[in-house]
Design a protein around this nucleic acid. Structure first.
Lengths: 235, 235
DNA sequence: TGCTATTTGTGTTTTAAAACACCAAAAGTA
DNA sequence: TACTTTTGGTGTTTTAAAACACAAATAGCA
């Protein structure tokens, strides 16, 4: 990781129309944009880890990041996948706690960190913005509650199907409109779906032999979305 | 369930020092207290159910409530337990979604419902209050993420131990300082811990024969808290 | 009060998924 | 380039927990 305050993608975090900051006044944007630092991460670099103290609001302007918790025997559970423009580490920041999860880039990524004090100032003075954050957290909590139930109750095939659908939903497709636009290792796919690596590999092969997907290295091509949704629903 | 706007416990939701509303100005409290309805529920009555549209912020002024999601084959997972003074159903309200979980009283309870519009008005005009809610949601999200990992990774004994510690943490002890102050059925204890009823019964008996707890009907008496915490950590 | 329904409790069987063991392929790296 | 490490892949064994089955006790109810 190295610091670099000069690449302009960081501005995106504040001005991008998909950002929660979209709609802030110029004064407010100025407060935020005067207090940030930027950095780049290569693939598989740690952005923060469990136990660290949040230094600000981290915005992902480029790349992809996995957020996971370590459980029994170091086994990791991916709780979220971040894409640009999006925020990471805001839960701990707003809870005034240290991180309870870790964030690692799964491809080359760029982030900027917005100073906490400036952010709090803007929140306090802008009720609509505060409501947006409340809305964001509430949705995230709903997602987490749903995951708890599916990860504990669905069978392996259902869990993997759900993960694939989640990845499509988060990152979309390549230009061919059928290849999922993210390359996870079998191990990460397993960590996302609460299963062992061998079971992820095995179940992926099953899906492939059933012509639900096709595999090409780390690329996953969706051949039968309806069927995948069906497997997701029925378990 | 029946309506009754005259019992004074409802005022508690706004004035109680443990409430997020504590610290609001009199004007703000007035706005909120002018727009609420109260109701009483007997044991095992539905307060809201999955799919319902939230009508306002529900405050529990008396009693105990379980919040759960239905999963595969109707199997329920308890995601939260509410105590007075506390709020229920706020996630869906703030996410502008229908409920994704259901709430059922596990003993006689009293709730009041604060009008959504009035609440939003107060949030928009009081940044500190908004931050309190952001903090509340962020903590709840942390709890949910932790649960996801422990429910999927811990073994039965560890999961049950964690649930018992969670119940102690939430409801505390009776006057004897060792009986958990909530009476859940074995089925509910199972739904809280992601296991079948028979396994909850079996594991409780194991704990009892190991002198970690003692059982007296639905009463659970903690005999060896250190050991219970140990089982929770290692199990 | 007796009758039904639910909850509690225990033994047995089945099964889904982990654990283990091993090899092949690919990707780093010296 | 060869060498090491990581990732992908597959068969076999083991095991934790569900599923099933059936009493006993308790609670709800007419």
């Amino acid at each position: 990781m190295y610091y670099d305050n000069n690449f302009k993608d960081c501005i995106d975090c504040i001005n991008n129309e998909n950002s929660v900051f979209f709609g802030l006044s110029n004064d407010e944007k100025k407060i935020l944009s005067q207090n940030y630092t930027c950095s780049k991460y290569k693939k598989n670099e740690v952005i923060y880890k469990e136990g660290d103290k949040p230094m600000g609001l981290i915005c992902l302007s480029k790349g992809k990041v996995k957020i996971f918790k370590e459980g029994i025997g170091g086994r990791e559970q991916i709780v979220r996948m971040a894409k640009p423009v999006g925020f990471i580490g805001y839960r701990a920041l707003f809870a005034n706690e240290n991180y309870i999860s870790s964030a690692i880039s799964i491809e080359e990524s760029e982030v900027c960190v917005l100073d906490k004090a400036s952010l709090l100032k803007v929140i306090k003075n802008n009720g609509d913005f505060a409501l947006k954050l409340i809305n964001l957290l509430a949705k995230e909590l709903g997602f987490s509650n749903k995951r708890t139930v599916t990860l504990t109750q669905k069978h392996i095939r259902g869990r993997l199907a759900e993960s694939l659908l989640f990845l499509i939903d988060t990152y979309g497709y390549e230009e061919d409109n059928k290849t999922i636009k993210v390359y996870l290792s079998r191990g990460d796919l397993a960590n996302l779906s609460n299963m062992t690596t061998s079971n992820a590999i095995r179940t992926l092969s099953s899906f492939a032999s059933e012509k639900v997907i096709a595999l090409n290295g780390k690329k996953i091509i969706i051949k039968d979305l309806k069927m995948l949704q069906r497997i997701n629903r029925l378990g």
